[in-house]
Amino acid sequence: METRVGFIGLGIMGRPMAANLRRAGLPLTVWNRSPRAAADLASLGAVVRPTPSAVFEASDVVLLMLAHEAAVDEVLQRGSEAFVRMVSGRALVHLGTTSPGFSAALGRDVEAVDGDYVEAPVSGSRIPAERAELVALVGGRPDVVARVEPLLGAMCREVVRCGDVPAGTGTKLAVNLYLCTMVAGLAEAFHLADRLDLDLEVFRRALDSGPMASAVSAVKLAKLVARDFEAQAAVRDVHTNTRLIADAARAAGVHSPVLEATRELFRETEAAGLGALDMAAVVTALERQDTGRAGRVSSGPATRHTPSGRDHG
């Protein structure tokens, strides 16, 4: 019998991930707090349910892509009879990024009521999600992982088995430490090039042509040059990630000075009211520190008119 799939959480990442499940021909039931995103999935043939519990009732495997731990607990109603009814006899796949301790405790709670649990936080942002090019970092019992791996394969270009829970979450945090500090470093390099009055398109070509180029640097540098901060990975979510990474590092007795500097930049950016913009907008924190005011901020692309590429407006 074909696996009935449920998907809860249709935000920046969840909506394209769920859409790829439908494009793979999987029967899909969805719920989202905001009905507009759910309506988009309905146009692809997904069945929209009025509550999370209704999604569980209609599904054998339910995938959660929620923003933070509190949202997971709220949706699942952990500690209640409703939680038992929802997860008992079903597989729950936790796709979001939380602390290792939270994921491990959630897995114990699910298994205590005869459910199955897999953590599969994904590495990637909106564009890889749209292209089904995410990387799933999976933790769980091998038999349960094998059962849900075809579903992950519909959304991801690679599924990496990390071991038992919470090894998948731990791997995601370690990967994200590199991602967050890399993008902050790229923003700082861009800011220096801008303040040196360099031609920013030339700077972009120089970096994209060299050994430091990557898929992330190409996308984020293009956004910085265009002053396009439409969110692919939002500042507020990245700031939350840096907190989770810092907490995990402290728990492990690991010193993380580069992360702490990066975390402060994202904190300042969110505190300035820019939390909904792309993580590349972290450059505005550097601009404020240098000039006492942020540069022009946009949620979409802008055109530069000066020969050097600098924005003097």
Rank of each mutant, 00 (worst) to 15 (best):
M1A: 14
V5C: 09
I8Q: 00
I8T: 01
G9W: 03
G11Q: 05
G14Q: 04
G14V: 07
R15M: 10
N20E: 09
L21M: 15
G25C: 10
L26D: 00
L26K: 13
L28I: 04
L28N: 04
T29A: 13
T29G: 05
W31V: 00
W31A: 00
N32R: 08
R33K: 09
D40V: 13
L41K: 06
L41D: 09
G45I: 07
V48C: 11
V48R: 12
T51A: 10
T51F: 12
A54P: 01
V55F: 06
A58H: 13
V61A: 04
V61I: 10
L66D: 04
D73K: 14
R78V: 11
G79R: 13
S80N: 06
S80D: 07
E81C: 00
A82S: 08
A82L: 06
F83N: 06
R85W: 03
S88C: 07
G89M: 08
G89R: 09
R90W: 07
L92A: 03
G96D: 05
S99H: 10
P100C: 05
F102Y: 15
F102I: 04
S103F: 03
V110Y: 03
E111W: 04
V113T: 11
D114P: 00
G115Q: 05
V118M: 05
A120K: 05
P121A: 09
G124I: 13
R126W: 08
I127K: 13
R131F: 01
L134N: 08
A136C: 08
A136T: 06
V138D: 03
G140V: 03
V144A: 06
V145G: 01
L151I: 15
A154K: 07
A154F: 06
M155H: 01
C156Y: 04
R157W: 05
R161W: 08
D164Q: 14
G170E: 07
L173D: 02
L179F: 12
L179S: 10
L179G: 00
V183D: 02
V183G: 04
A184C: 07
L186H: 03
A187T: 05
A187C: 14
H191P: 08
H191A: 10
D197R: 15
D197V: 03
F203D: 06
R204H: 13
R205Q: 15
D208L: 14
S209F: 07
M212H: 10
A213Y: 11
V216I: 12
S217T: 14
A218M: 12
L221F: 10
K223Q: 14
K223D: 08
V238A: 06
T240I: 09
T240Q: 15
A246N: 13
D247Q: 15
R250Q: 07
R250H: 13
A251G: 12
A251N: 11
A252I: 03
F266E: 02
R267Y: 08
A271N: 14
A272Y: 07
A280T: 08
V282Q: 02
V283W: 01
L286C: 02
R288P: 00
G292Q: 12
G292R: 13
A294D: 14
G295H: 07
R296C: 11
R296L: 11
V297K: 02
G300V: 12
G300E: 12
G300S: 13
P301S: 15
P301L: 11
P301A: 14
A302T: 12
R304M: 11
T306E: 14
S308T: 15
R310D: 01
G313Y: 12
